[in-house]
Write a protein that binds this DNA or RNA. Structure first.
Length: 491
RNA sequence: CGGGAUGUAGCGCAGUCCGGUUAGCGCAUCUGGUUUGGGACCAGAGGGUCGCAGGUUCGAAUCCUGCCAUCCCGACCA
């Protein structure tokens, strides 16, 4: 089986690349470090978008759009911010091309140099806060709860399809508040939304936590994160939410008059998830037969495949298939009936497995005679034959069951690969041989964190929000520690 | 930016060391036929600036020089 995919156990990253390409989600483009998201991959992103967008709206947010280009000077306003992003910015310096005077080809017209160079946004805090300055005068203008769906560019050295590309799609929320408490509440609320989405739609269990100073977003006072565990034992940061304090308000001079008539700087948050989520989806659930998609995010939830020899057979099968399709669609289930006659059923079975379609129905002459239908589920690769008359209800509950099962499987995997470690040699050994999440004590200093990273390539993924106080000794230095933090090697 | 590798049909590759007919194979595509309950088969057909630019030679995918691009491994990162 699956002879077209690299074996997951043999070479995980090759398996991942193969899968993205073979399932027709994305491909490499002519531009180094940039990918083409193909219709099937984009359809998954659209599902992600539409669900998240609903959740944002439900929490009071509205969408807007800000420019792709940011004047270079905006970046230098906030010191940490510029330091964090300077190394990976694409810069626009000219606005015109012309024909090469010496012959063929096109060159940049040197006379068309921009007065001020423009940075292609790696994130939009600066351009947005420059606008917010004009929007905010009084506490009555607050809060501002805006989200934008956009592309951003971060010039990466090493790229991987969906996980890290130079240009990627994401959403970025940018909110402005009258008080610190309210902004912190927003920051926490949104990491909660992300965790909810990850677990209930993507079927990926996540650990909510706070980043260390070192791993914090450039310009934030606090960064909240959701961390997921992939099947190869590496962690993936799946979403972040930042409490920005008054840093950007000060940088862009955004003050407001509060109820008592005093002037104060506005409090800010920002939060985002990207097309990286699709990478997470792939790496959390898929197997050697291909993609495994949770029903709630699968572009096609059910595929129906006819098995026939003659035109007459196809006709009578199609009648049944189209009726079932209509019934399922009436229940809000997305169905594809694949009656192409240029591929064998076997090919189709394999192909839809590769693409991760949760439920496959097959109808053949035998079924027509017996009033039955074959139902196969992608998550367990099992098949059963059931009565045709019961099919719609069966599929409906099966989709729910698959969604739950995929999550439980991922949760079980995470539990089996989460360890509490107290000795250094054991720490190193676990990282090298087991991978996974490691809860260990840390003395709280950046020096120790960096030393551990240097020695083991593992990082502190977060200080979990639900971690209990527990006296202990730092895994590296032996100094006292008040609680465990989450370590892992990460993407 | 350092180390390694590769560029030949849409994709995957052989041929390059040791220059010599008309550049070949698998997959895919197209045509016709037989098939169809787990990646079908037969027959035929189309498809190439051999990464680019120079050079050596009677003759270059093959040798030489320069350039370009991509991939892998490191430092940076959602």
């Amino acid at each position: 089986m699956a002879k077209f995919l690299t074996n997951r156990e043999e070479n995980y990253s090759q398996w991942y690349n193969d899968l993205v390409i073979k399932a027709d989600m994305a491909e490499y483009s002519a531009v180094r470090g940039c990918m083409v998201i193909k219709p099937y991959g984009y359809a998954i992103w659209e599902k992600v978008q539409s669900e998240l967008d609903k959740m944002f709206k439900a929490t009071g947010h509205v969408n807007a759009y800000f420019p792709l280009f940011i004047p270079k000077s905006f970046f230098s306003r906030e010191a940490d911010h510029v330091k964090g992003f300077a190394k990976e910015c694409a810069v626009v310096t000219h606005y015109r091309l012309k024909n090469d005077e010496t012959g063929k080809g096109i060159v940049v017209d040197p006379t068309a140099k921009l007065e001020e160079e423009l940075v292609v946004r790696p994130t939009s805090e600066t351009i947005i806060w420059n606008s917010y300055k004009n929007w905010i005068q009084s506490y009555r203008d607050l809060p501002i709860l805006i989200n934008q769906w956009a592309n951003v560019v971060r010039w990466e050295m090493r790229t991987r399809l969906f996980l890290r590309t130079s240009e990627f799609l994401w959403q970025e929320g940018h909110t402005a508040h009258a008080t610190s408490e309210e902004a912190i509440e927003e920051t926490e609320k949104m990491i909660g939304v992300y965790a909810d989405f990850a677990e209930n739609f993507m079927a990926i269990p996540v650990v909510k936590g706070v980043k260390t100073v070192n791993e914090r977003f450039a310009g934030a006072l606090d960064t909240y994160t959701i961390e997921a565990l992939m099947q190869d034992g590496k962690a993936l940061q799946a979403g972040t939410s930042h409490f920005l304090g008054q840093n950007f308000a000060k940088a862009f001079d955004v003050q407001f008059t509060d109820k008592s008539g005093k002037l104060d700087y506005v409090w800010a948050t920002s939060w985002g998830v990207s097309t990286r989520l699709i990478g997470a989806l792939i790496m959390a659930h898929s197997d050697n037969n291909g993609l495994v998609l949770p029903p709630k995010l699968a572009p096609t939830q059910v595929v129906i495949i006819p098995i026939f020899k003659t035109e007459e057979q196809l006709d009578s099968i199609s009648k049944e298939a189209n009726r079932i399709k209509a019934d399922l669609e009436a229940m809000g289930i997305s169905v594809k009936y694949d009656d192409r006659d240029n591929n064998t059923p076997g090919f189709k079975f394999a192909d839809y497995e590769l693409k991760g379609v949760p439920v496959r129905l097959a109808i053949g002459p035998r079924d027509l005679k017996n009033g039955t239908i074959e139902v196969a589920r992608r998550d367990t690769l099992t098949k059963e034959t059931i009565q045709m008359s019961a099919i719609t209800e069966h599929v409906k509950s099966l989709l729910r069951e698959i969604q739950k099962n995929i999550f439980n499987k991922a949760l079980r995997f995470r539990e089996e690969n989460t360890r509490y470690v107290d000795r250094w040699d054991q720490f190193v050994d676990t990282l090298d041989n087991e991978g996974g999440f490691i809860y260990a004590h840390w003395d709280g200093t950046t020096e120790t964190e960096e030393k551990i990273k240097e020695l083991t390539k593992s990082t502190i993924r977060c200080i979990p929000l639900n971690s209990k106080d527990e006296e202990g000794k730092c895994i590296l230095t032996g100094k006292p520690s008040a609680r465990r933090v989450l370590f892992a090697r990460a993407y």
